[in-house]
């Protein structure tokens, strides 16, 4: 680069800053035009400025900023990993998927405390030491604490299904599941607990469960089979009826009965690594049937044979369900 070009470039950037400062007048802009015409070099320098600033046009500002303006350690985390040859972490990133990774980053203590955990798309069956059955749904973490007085499970994230084992009356220990929002005490029973959308939800399939929000010590609600309730730390919502097919996930299936496509896709996305979305124009289509949850790609493929939709994938992280394109007639 010869010194003259450097001068032209410096002038060009100074002009750019000045012209975009909001302080430039018409006469300033005429001066800039004169500078531009003064030499081919000035013109080339200006083109370079525009080729840089032009790269930003047409980008989604908010999303782009949140990608490009991350702090340095976050932006280059992936390079550092590589430098340290921490290949394990990289493969973990892919194993748990992006959403799981974010949760992992934001709540690192969960991983340390959990006794049982599942990755995205994984469903795991466990028999606890008292013989109770525990099923972990996708992306779930549970800590187990059994002592002489209590059988205590702490749900840290995700969803679990429990079938409590019968115990001799003289050795009876209450079976309690807690979440950050409250607790569910089993009264010899089959039930599920889920943390979702900053709430917890308990649904009962057999017998009864007593549910309490953590901040309201005086208030609790008794749920019978076929009932569910949502609650936050300080609020218990009203009980609602609950479809018993909702435990189909424990067998690795989703059962849909005229389910809106959007609800179906939202549900499926819990088992899918990466983003899975449904175009709003087909959100209201309804779907019925039993579909496997553990292979979301295969399920989407079979749905695309039933409904007028097509599945558009951009890498394994981004899948859109769109209306099928009309065949040219």
């Amino acid at each position: 680069m010869n010194p003259k070009t450097t001068d032209a470039l410096n002038s060009a950037t100074q002009w750019y800053v000045f012209l975009t400062s909001g302080e430039a007048t018409d006469s300033d802009r005429r001066d800039w035009q004169d500078w531009l015409k003064a030499s081919a070099e000035n013109e080339r320098a200006w083109q370079k400025v525009e080729s840089v600033t032009g790269r930003f046009t047409g980008l989604d500002n908010k999303a782009s900023l949140s990608v490009l303006d991350r702090p340095k350690h976050e932006r280059q985390a992936i390079f550092d990993e590589q430098r340290r040859r921490a290949i394990k972490h990289l493969s973990l990133l892919f194993m748990v998927g992006t959403s799981g990774w974010l949760a992992y980053q934001h709540k690192p203590w969960h991983g340390l405390m959990a006794d049982f955990a599942t990755a995205t798309g994984e469903i795991k069956h466990v028999t606890l030491q008292d013989g109770s059955k525990l099923v972990l749904n996708t992306n779930t973490k549970v800590a187990v604490q059994f002592d002489k007085q209590y059988r205590h499970l702490q749900l840290l994230q995700g969803e679990i299904y429990i079938e409590t084992a019968k115990q001799p009356v003289e050795q009876h220990r209450p079976f309690i599941v807690t979440t950050e929002h409250g607790s569910a005490t089993a009264l010899g029973t089959q039930f599920s607990v889920r943390i979702h959308d900053k709430q917890s939800q308990v649904g009962v399939f057999k017998d009864a469960v007593e549910v309490k929000a953590s901040d309201v010590s005086s208030h609790s609600v008794r749920l019978n089979a076929g009932e569910k309730v949502s609650f936050t730390r300080n609020k218990l919502y009203a009980k609602v009826a609950f479809d018993l097919s909702a435990k189909a996930w424990t067998q690795g299936f989703i059962i849909a009965d005229k389910m809106p496509l959007k609800t179906f896709v939202d549900e499926l996305s819990r088992y899918h690594t990466g983003v899975l979305r449904c175009d709003p124009s087909i959100a209201e289509l309804t779907i019925s049937g039993a579909f496997p949850l553990t292979d979301t790609d295969a399920t989407l493929k079979s749905v695309s044979q039933i409904l007028p939709i097509q599945v558009e994938s951009h890498t394994r992280y981004w899948t859109m369900i769109k209306p099928a394109q009309k065949q040219p007639s």
Partner: peptide
Amino acid sequence: DIENAYLMALSQLPEAESPST
């Protein structure tokens, strides 16, 4: 890295703004 971060950012936005592939 950018792709993951961008998809993550997009997933926070309302659906109507999803771009085509």
